[in-house]
Design a protein around this nucleic acid. Sequence first.
RNA 1: GGGUCGAUGCCCGAGUGGUUAAUGGGGGCGGACUGUAAAUCCGCUGGCUUAGCCUACGGUGGUUCGAACCCACCUCGGCCCA
Length: 399
Amino acid sequence: MSIDPKAWQTLTRGVVEIISEDELKAKLAKGKPLNIKLGVDPTAPDIHLGFTVVMRKLRQFQDLGHRVILIVGDYTATVGDPSGRNKTRPILSHEEVLRNAETYKQQFFKIVDPARTTVVYNGDWFSKMTFTEVTKLLAQITVAQMLEREDFKNRYEAGQPISLHEFLYPLMQGYDSVMIEADVELGGTDQKFNVLRGRELQRAIGKEAQVGLFLPILLGTDGREKMSKSLGNTIGIDEPPQAMYHKLYSLPDALVESYFQLLTDIPMEEVRSKLAEVAAGKSNPNGLKDELARNIVTQYHGADAAEKAAEEERRIHSGEALPQDIPVLQVKAGEHWVPALLTQAGIVKSNGEGRRMIENGGVSFDGEKLADAKVNVQVTGEHILRAGKRGFVKVLAKS
RNA sequence: GGGUCGAUGCCCGAGUGGUUAAUGGGGGCGGACUGUAAAUCCGCUGGCUUAGCCUACGGUGGUUCGAACCCACCUCGGCCCA
């Protein structure tokens, strides 16, 4: 059986590396549903667009008739994946992991089809392993091989601690592949080392090795580092449409192409020709970013929400007009110290920060810029307090 | 177990008895500019209605008029030796 070229194009869209391509073709050519593996450690409950790159790929496999096996790493999460890390991850309790796993699944199935997915917990096998079996597993790899790994090497050379249990992680992930008989394992490029361990372990027991399919690491909104919660450069899939739209719309220019490629199904020829127009100075990148933002917001919130978010964005940036749905802060009529109002509204974390913001000229009350942090304002009816670009609050006098 | 070095604000990193809430960089935030951005420039970046007070330099005690800085013990980490 030959492989449909269109299907192949879909499956390889955005893919950085396949180990190996021939093996994948051979597996696909069997014409049988393949086991597509994704392992997750629900260390943080919120899924952001960075994770969706891989999830979208899973979905594409599903749409071609394959089945997804989601491994919830309830055991591995207690070890902590050292991939790309420069320090030891904090170890989570088992209960925390299970709790996170629930919210995780909920979000996961916004993209992946639950009907074609099997969810398993790797604690099912790891909790039953004997020490002898663990030792055997450890015998599969040498210290030198471990230290060859980029992130371990860096940490080791930088004099950063590496706990021994972190060496266990790649082997555990590989063992997962053995247990579920994975045909293909998906992951970011940072997963290469771990995925390759799966191939070795499968071969070691005489089974067909899984194929590793690697996707790029999505950069975060700062345009510099990978999207990650700890760097605060994420776009969460549960974020309100407005926030999502805004972040995508103000994306650094350099990221636009990769976001289209990894997060949408829009044909790349189309995207590239538009990018060429922008590069030639024939059009403004706003249009493209608007299209990107609408497309992605639509995926998670629907077309209406996307339309509204786009309008809202325009309203705010066109100048005078205010956004709809400004949070309301009710206070007693009379004199109020602005920094305290800002703190109460949750726009700033402390009165001191609010004071500074005023001194920096970032705060206005009813459209009038405040110059002095000491002066109070009179609240008589309804007022608009604005701090910074996006901090709006409607101050309402309590009657 | 022995030796040795180290732990400073969101991060990195200066400071080694007295205007030190603590140089500098990164990041973040605000302002100008702009295409929403980027780049650039300016300002801010512990808390408190602030000429002042409080909290802070791994922890606990101590020395001293006075400590991030000196001493003791403890905790954690790197390296070398076993």
